[in-house]
């Protein structure tokens, strides 16, 4: 009798003990950002610090996910390796002017967008001949190697602008100054960063919506939903307005300070 009743009691005790919690939370949050995008994500070669709107946004999100400054690690994540870095779980989040597209959504879970950028046009400050994208007909625009932005003008919109092959956006600015090209057409936030400190003007005639999302490893829905809640807070408490003004006020760009329409975690 004694053995018979004590054995099951021991079994219950074992079962209770076996029902432990899952593994402890990660100590730090690794966030992929850009290192060469002025105004968005730029690595200071001297101080080794990242700065820009994307980086500041990433810090705010991390803070609201419970990761203070000491527990956030930034990692340079160029456009070509973003999906691979997420898949390999080398980064937890990517905040790097990463546009949400239906195709990318098959490989990446996107929180946000944290901002909807728009393709716009940058011209020399004294050029009054270009008011919107249609005015680019017959003009020379910067065709950056590996970037699709200029094709959105020539191919998607069918506007007869001439693309001038140029290796980087930084070089586009030099050419614009020198009068070798007439305009640079890409996301307004990128243009704002490029225009800083130069005699150039954004025409403020946006013609696309570029949803800048926060990339997460595919299927990380719980964190994706938490990021969306953090973004709602960041916009509701005025942090987003402060960051947007800090980074883009001087560029003459009209920024939107209302929370964007989220994509939905999937």
């Amino acid at each position: 009798m004694r053995r018979l009743v004590l054995a099951p009691a021991a079994a219950v005790a074992l079962a209770v003990a076996g029902c432990s919690l899952g593994p402890a939370n990660d100590d730090e949050l690794v966030i992929g950002v850009k290192a060469d995008q002025p105004g968005l994500g730029l690595l200071d070669a001297r101080t080794k610090k990242y700065d820009g709107f994307d980086v500041a946004m990433a810090r705010e999100i991390a803070k609201r996910l419970g990761y203070g400054p000491g527990r956030v690690v930034f990692r340079t994540t160029p456009s070509s390796v973003r999906e691979a870095e997420l898949k390999a779980r080398n980064v937890d989040l990517i905040v790097a002017s990463y546009s949400i597209t239906p195709k990318r959504k098959t490989q990446v879970t996107f929180a946000g967008p944290y901002y909807v950028a728009h393709q716009d046009t940058l011209v020399r400050a004294d050029d009054r001949s270009i008011g919107d994208v249609r005015d680019l007909a017959g003009k020379r625009i910067c065709a950056v190697t590996g970037s699709n932005s200029w094709r959105r003008v020539t191919e998607e919109r069918g506007i007869a602008a001439r693309g001038v092959e140029t290796p980087t956006y930084g070089k586009c600015m030099d050419r614009l100054d020198a009068g070798e090209i007439d305009a640079v057409s890409t996301d307004d936030l990128i243009l704002a960063g490029l225009a800083a400190g130069r005699r150039a003007r954004i025409v403020n005639a946006p013609f696309t919506d570029e949803k800048y999302g926060i990339g997460l490893p595919k299927g990380d829905l719980a964190r994706c939903e938490a990021v969306n809640r953090a973004l709602t807070e960041i916009y509701q408490d005025g942090t987003a307005t402060r960051l947007l003004h800090r980074w883009f006020r001087d560029s003459g760009l009209n920024v939107t300070t209302h929370v964007p329409q989220f994509e939905g975690c999937s």
């Binding site: 829905l221 719980a222 939903e225 969306n228 809640r229 709602t232 939107t256 209302h258 929370v259 964007p260 329409q261 989220f262 939905g264 975690c265």
Partner: peptide, 20 residues
Amino acid sequence: IELLPKAYNVALDSGATVRQ
């Protein structure tokens, strides 16, 4: 810019509650 995104986000947030 203001109304639709907010309405949509509330729907998504409720959807997240259901999923969780």
